[in-house]
Computed example of a mutant assay.
Amino acid sequence: MLPLLLASSSVYRRQLLARLGLPFVCSSPDIDESRRPDEPALDLVKRLAREKALALADSHPGHLIIGSDQVAVLGEQILGKPHTFENAREQLLAASGARVSFLTGLAVLNSQTGACQVDCVPFTVHMRTLDPARVERYLLAEQPYDCAGSFKAEGLGVSLFQSTEGPDATSLVGLPLIRLVDMLLAEGVQIP
């Protein structure tokens, strides 16, 4: 089996991948994550997942490289990482009572053969109606400034959801394990 490399510095993705019980290493790819003009969210996350994996191919020959990227979509607006309290507050108040779609791009690149599998796993959350005081309490407690749409679903962010729907709840955290297992099996990886 080729060694696994997670092309990410995300602690959330690392924790998810560890659940599969497979040995892996992590390395952070250095890519431009900017959205191209008029690029649809689906195309964006698939492109970035693939580019993250490709960015490490030369330095890690003979590896299965896993790349992933996620955006939250509210209506027609792509919600990226807020980076600041004010941006996060604005994102969450705009999402109050609404439906938010999370699109998680996933790529598995065999750097030995050049074969690359790419997919996107959608997940939808229906938000509770949120008032400014609740949003501020959540932001002060969680500080989700590195999370798409300001949602930290593995923590208190789940309290902001009324309901969820989708094929793989792990995609909400940023690494869709069910689809990843399919991709790894296609590469001959023996899952415990």
Results as ranks from 00 to 15, higher is better:
2 L>G: 07
83 H>T: 07
33 E>N: 12
56 L>Y: 01
3 P>L: 04
13 R>A: 00
102 F>Y: 13
139 L>Y: 05
19 R>E: 10
179 R>D: 09
187 E>F: 11
112 Q>S: 11
14 R>I: 03
76 E>R: 12
92 L>Y: 01
88 A>I: 05
110 N>G: 04
130 L>S: 09
192 P>D: 01
66 I>P: 03
74 L>E: 08
157 G>D: 01
109 L>Q: 08
162 Q>T: 11
122 P>M: 06
163 S>P: 07
160 L>D: 03
158 V>C: 15
105 G>H: 02
181 V>A: 05
15 Q>I: 04
82 P>F: 00
98 A>C: 12
173 V>R: 03
153 A>P: 02
129 T>S: 15
146 D>R: 07
120 C>P: 01
25 V>E: 08
101 S>F: 10
29 P>D: 07
31 I>Y: 08
141 A>L: 12
138 Y>R: 01
119 D>W: 03
76 E>S: 15
131 D>S: 11
140 L>P: 06
127 M>W: 02
15 Q>R: 12
41 A>E: 00
125 V>L: 14
47 R>L: 04
142 E>W: 12
133 A>Y: 11
116 C>H: 04
162 Q>R: 14
59 S>I: 14
166 G>T: 14
21 G>S: 09
105 G>L: 05
69 D>N: 06
37 P>L: 11
11 V>Q: 07
49 A>V: 02
57 A>W: 10
163 S>I: 05
178 I>M: 14
120 C>N: 10
153 A>D: 05
6 L>T: 05
90 E>L: 12
32 D>E: 13
96 S>V: 09
66 I>M: 06
96 S>D: 12
135 V>K: 05
126 H>I: 04
186 A>K: 15
72 A>E: 09
64 L>Q: 02
6 L>G: 14
74 L>N: 11
36 R>F: 11
171 S>H: 01
113 T>W: 04
150 S>Q: 00
134 R>F: 06
164 T>H: 00
87 N>Y: 02
119 D>E: 12
103 L>K: 13
102 F>D: 09
174 G>Q: 03
176 P>A: 08
8 S>E: 07
169 A>M: 04
89 R>K: 13
26 C>V: 06
69 D>P: 02
107 A>F: 03
188 G>I: 10
72 A>P: 01
40 P>E: 10
63 H>N: 13
30 D>L: 10
24 F>P: 10
186 A>W: 13
152 K>R: 15
145 Y>K: 03
52 K>A: 13
105 G>M: 00
87 N>R: 12
120 C>Y: 06
156 L>S: 04
173 V>W: 00
181 V>W: 03
83 H>G: 01
190 Q>T: 15
